[in-house]
Design a protein around this nucleic acid. Structure first.
Lengths: 156, 156
DNA sequence: GTTTTCGGTTGCAATTTGCAACCTTATGGT
DNA sequence: ACCATAAGGTTGCAAATTGCAACCGAAAAC
């Protein structure tokens, strides 16, 4: 009896959760986005056990989210986000924004994301219409896509 | 020895993960967004064990993400997303988009999100500049916010 | 009046997590 | 050369979580 896998659910959310839903994975990815590259730095930053960190890094490499390579000096390995990994940035931004809003620190935001060129803060994450207007949850409708039209798999 | 909590990390991502990072939680929330309200419907939709579902629903209610109330007929309880819960929609949308892109179904997207008014698909989730331009990960810089200026807590 | 459904709770086994100890390969100091 | 230390892990074991199945009380169906 293994833990139930999510990736056979024919649901994009379940696919994603299957890859990044394990404990610690997103915190590791956050540090990678902030420039942390080495095993020991992840470990001390996060206070994670080494065997767990090892397992998570290997999984992230296997899933194509981090790339493992020898450092310039050749002494140690480095873990760097791939393009696929960077595509998860919106997930992290959305979670950080929720945490800032609903579980705030009294002293203010903990991390601020700014546009590199202008130095000005980005907008809070939100759905955006085709022509660029922010959309509230109530303005969005969910439809079944082509991959769900198999009646044998209908939900509800 | 309990599992290590994330919420003492002074990090908004950790705060959010502490609330919605447990197994099954986001899948339950997805179903709630799609209109599932009742215990048994969540259970059959997801194939989740009833004790786990019970624990997750109670936690989501305690955290203010779902609201539990008696149904109109009074017979059974209903779980409905609160405003705080709906604020997590961008997290789910971002994860669904990543799954669609990187773990696709050969037949196409599984769920499509459209603007209710126009019926047209929304943009993929992405960071957006102050004046509404989509920003790639490379165009974003992360700065320490006011809540991190305590030197005793510096990272790296 | 008996059965079925709903919404759970309880008990137990399998799996995952966390901690500490250990290991191997550099590197540093003397 | 010799010993100590650090980096980057792996291994073993105890504790926590998850999953499954059985059970339970109340209400609805038959």
């Amino acid at each position: 009896m293994k833990y139930k896998r999510f990736d056979d659910m024919n649901c994009s959310l379940a696919q994603t959760l299957d890859v990044i839903g394990e404990r610690w994975t997103l915190l590791i990815l956050r540090d990678a986005f902030l420039g942390v590259k080495r095993f020991g730095h992840f470990q001390r930053n996060l206070g994670i056990a080494k065997n767990i960190l090892s397992a998570r890094l290997n999984r992230l490499v296997a899933e194509g989210i981090l790339e493992k390579r020898e450092s310039a000096e050749g002494a140690h390995a480095e873990y760097l986000p791939t393009a696929t990994g960077w595509d998860l940035q919106p997930v992290l931004l959305a979670m950080v924004h929720w945490g800032d809003k609903h579980r705030p620190d009294p002293r203010g935001d903990r991390l601020v994301f700014v546009e590199r060129k202008s130095g000005r803060p980005i907008r809070p994450m939100s759905a955006v219409s085709e022509d660029g207007r922010p959309l509230s949850p109530a303005e969005i409708r969910t439809e079944r896509g082509p991959a769900l039209d198999d009646p044998a798999r209908q939900r509800q």
